[in-house]
């Protein structure tokens, strides 16, 4: 009700949405990576990490960020436990 009367009260304004979407797409544009390649990379990284430690594939996060025109690949892989040697 209040938001209809005063649309500018809406917490998600289109200005911040524009910026958020741009930052995401530009990180991908700059790195020259499409979502399929990211997915492939994710699967391969997961495979390598899984050889050494026990992980939950569902919990892994892989994202591209871009700051000051430098793209950065961020992988967040929570480890359940280190595998026993041999």
């Amino acid at each position: 009700m209040l938001e209809k009367l005063f649309p500018w009260v809406s917490p998600v304004n289109s200005r911040s949405e524009a910026k958020r979407r741009l930052k995401l797409i530009l990180a991908h544009d700059r790195a020259g990576l499409n979502p399929q390649m990211i997915e492939l990379m994710r699967a391969e990284i997961l495979e390598v990490v899984a050889r050494y430690v026990e992980i939950d594939p569902e919990e892994m996060e892989l994202s591209l960020e871009s700051n000051e025109r430098i793209s950065c690949l961020m992988a967040n892989v929570p480890i359940r436990r280190v595998k026993a040697k041999g």
């Binding site: 500018w8 304004n13 289109s14 200005r15 911040s16 524009a18 910026k19």
Partner: peptide, 8 residues
């Protein structure tokens, strides 16, 4: 911009 309807 003032109304947050355009990027500044």
């Amino acid at each position: 911009v003032q109304m947050n309807e355009m990027m500044g």
